[in-house]
Design a protein around this nucleic acid. Structure first.
Lengths: 357, 357
DNA sequence: GTGAAAGCGCTAACAA
DNA sequence: TTGTTAGCGCTTTCAC
């Protein structure tokens, strides 16, 4: 069976009528109106009479018509899709952020494309480029190292961007981009102060990669706290590795076997702290009796760890949610100044820290 | 300054030349060829002479031209984007799957839109509908309950779909859709058998929601193991709740205070098992001395728990990876039969299980 | 090997 | 309030 679909200038040879996707022309024809009117109804413009609107809505329902957003995006440049670039979605810290981003996006009828950059600038650049081709409306980026050239060279006018949890070097650059961070200096300070106030003097610090700015900031907080309490900073007590259990484990193993071993370790993330706990267990040190441990992030891991980790809370979900919300509001054309929002961090005391023996 | 861009039928009023996105017309003009030729080069068709190809490539580079995939998708219907529907990305089980999906997708130059359905069929339906409008190429769905009407009524011809970790009721329905699952009956059996062989006879089962088929299957494995070892199944020992720490906690609290309390609990997920551990701690039961606990999934939580959880390993990452790969291969038009792939589960023995006192 | 021209399914200016 | 029509930036016949 062959049929002609009598769309204006379109001539379809159709095998099964239902197999073809319906277009705005089919709806227009069925409702006895022009495509412009159908478009008006679809986009909820008010200048359509109730009478015709009803007819169009009926036709849409009867034909099971689904509007094609790709076609409309060709004109409007809006795909109602955000992209989220993070190092690794399987990391609880980022999956919590992602959940916040997606919830906000969903709330405004946006979708989110998630990309894992693995802290790899090249991979990030490829994603950025591919997604621009797809006319994604905006970007939330959380994978930048402190001097991320991808971001510095990015055309923020054309592609709205919110930086999440990371800053770019240079105050001027920062003034051009919306940024959401948490107060890492404060977090580093709080963790260190907590240990000092418990009576610790030999406090080692195990951070994530140096290139990631949050680590520099947490270190700053650590130094500041020691200074404020008039404890000399021992450079040999400051270490860095990766945000991985293994990394925390091996560093701690090394540290804890030195003569002048610390009575406390402040880890730059919960994951690192988990590695420290493991090393302590292997070496027969009791936590917190022989060694106090403080983590960072307050992911679900901190609750579950043995013993439950004292840690610094970051508001991942809220940061993600706000990032998406800011981005969407900017996309909607609100003339708002560039913002830089700093989320508070706070100390969460659990069982992994106590006064030294 | 006003300029005319001399694109064929297009007349642009341009303020800053560089501010406008370059189109295929600009490239064609600069290279002195037609847009058809540019298109051929972009799509790597072979029928272009090396000479002209070089000119076109040069023009592309000089203009910093970025092809518009939305426009091309209007013809080709390919957006090179998959969507992944899962209950909750912040759940480590699903974030591990998501990572596998995204890695495979990225490997084939696809992107993935992640959606959180919260086990809510209505929310799932809304996502499915919205994403169809966006011409997403295919779907990976992991949120279906066992009789998910959204999936049953889904037009798999038009929108390729892979079911991940869940099946649909009815063998016939299943034959129409690619499915990737792990062997939950086997997993349930292995966990139960492990406890039986340790000498346990009073083994309680705490599952997730009954509507989710995996729970029914794990229960089946549990029953089978008891029967094989000639232990009477006590219906009062089978419980169900949610896949949440709290749920496991409250159920275990209740169970452990009964007169005839179990010597072992098999939890339907690591998260539930974590709740059980917490309840045991609160009530002063030592794990594994007073109570053995076995989890399910082998997420990162199992490693980290106190004590580390004996659990059933599921290959989340590989399942996710394969799901995306299957979907993409189908999208590429390979005429392949509908597949149903079952991943093995295996017992991982850690510290939360031992013989009963 | 290359170009002209007709759409893909919409939106939006302009007419009526 | 409604319709006509010219694109949006590509792909894809069909000529040459």
């Amino acid at each position: 069976m062959f049929l002609f679909s009598e769309n204006c200038k379109r001539l379809h040879v159709i095998m099964e009528v239902d197999a073809m996707s319906k277009t705005i022309y089919d709806v227009a024809k069925k409702a006895g109106v022009s495509i412009a009117t159908v478009s008006r109804v679809l986009n909820k413009k008010d200048n359509v009479s109730d009478e015709t609107k009803k007819r169009v809505l009926n036709a849409i329902k009867e034909l099971d018509y689904v509007p094609n957003m790709v076609a409309s995006a060709l004109m409007t440049k809006k795909m109602f899709t955000l992209s989220l670039l993070i190092p690794d979605i399987s990391n609880p810290y980022f999956s919590e952020i992602a959940r916040g981003v997606e919830d906000a996006a969903n709330n405004y009828n946006y979708n989110v494309i998630v990309c894992n950059t693995d802290y790899d600038l090249k991979k990030e650049a490829i994603y950025l480029n591919l997604l621009r081709q797809k006319s994604v409306d905006g970007f939330i980026v959380s994978s930048a190292t402190y001097n991320d050239e991808n971001i510095c060279n990015f055309d923020h006018k054309k592609y709205p961007l919110v930086l999440l949890g990371r800053e770019i070097e240079g105050a001027e650059e920062n003034k051009k981009i919306d940024i959401i961070v948490s107060n890492n200096v404060c977090g580093g300070y709080l963790a260190t102060e907590h240990l000092i106030e418990l009576g610790h003097r030999k406090i080692d610090l195990i951070l994530g990669p140096k290139e990631i700015k949050v680590n520099q900031e947490r270190e700053k907080g650590y130094r500041k706290a020691l200074q404020d309490y008039e404890i000399t900073v021992d450079e040999n007590r400051i270490h860095s590795g990766e945000f991985k259990i293994k990394s925390g484990y091996s560093k701690a193993l090394e540290i804890l076997q030195k003569k002048d071993r610390p009575t406390a370790i402040f880890a730059g993330s919960d994951v690192i702290a988990i590695g420290v706990l493991k090393a302590a267990r292997v070496l027969g040190f009791k936590v917190p009796g022989d060694l106090s441990v403080v983590g960072y992030d307050n992911t679900i891991l901190a609750e579950i760890a043995d013993p439950p980790l004292t840690t610094i809370n970051q508001q991942m979900y809220r940061m993600g949610y706000l990032a998406a919300e800011m981005l969407i509001k900017r996309l909607r054309g609100a003339k708002r100044p560039i913002q830089r929002i700093v989320f508070d961090t706070e100390l969460v005391v659990r069982k992994s820290s106590s006064r030294p023996r």
